[in-house]
């Protein structure tokens, strides 16, 4: 059920990226896809009634902690992915603004026409 909702979010973003004509809207669709994938990865590592993968001062790390905590590996990867997505978003916006500077529009069909 939760996996399915996540996939639905991904598909909404994909549909937007395929059908939108405006560059900013396409960037936003890519951002939605990123959110969907991040959420999905965290979900895969979730454990029912698990604890956060941070050792508490009271409890000692050991098998009891290891069998009760959620998976830390996807979390670390997602943390990396989030920051990369911010950098990539900045790059995409930079390209879009440069295109606007040159062609005076964000519309990709117009840009294609103007290039000739």
């Amino acid at each position: 059920m939760h996996y399915f909702l996540c996939l639905l979010l991904l598909m909404v973003g994909l549909f937007g990226a395929l059908t939108q004509k405006n560059l900013i809207k396409i960037i936003l669709s890519v951002a939605i896809i990123e959110h969907a994938v991040n959420t999905f990865l965290i979900m895969v590592g979730y454990r029912h009634d698990g604890t956060a993968p941070i050792v508490d001062r009271a409890q000692v790390a050991g098998s009891s902690f290891a069998s009760g905590a959620v998976d830390p590996l996807p979390q670390a990867m997602v943390l990396t992915a989030i920051v990369i997505s911010l950098g990539v978003l900045a790059l995409m916006v930079a390209v879009a603004m440069r295109l606007y500077h040159t062609y005076g529009t964000y519309d990709i069909t117009e840009i294609r026409k103007l290039r000739g």
């Binding site: 959110h35 965290i42 943390l79 989030i82």
Partner: peptide, 30 residues
């Protein structure tokens, strides 16, 4: 989903994302 580490990041990242994107749109006739 018990990922406080990751939950902190989108909040601040989203704010900067909004700033970047609004910079790209505001002041243009689009």
């Amino acid at each position: 989903l018990r990922a406080p580490d990751v939950a902190l990041a989108p909040v601040v990242v989203e704010v900067l994302m909004l700033v970047i994107l609004i910079r790209a749109t505001v002041g243009r006739d689009v």
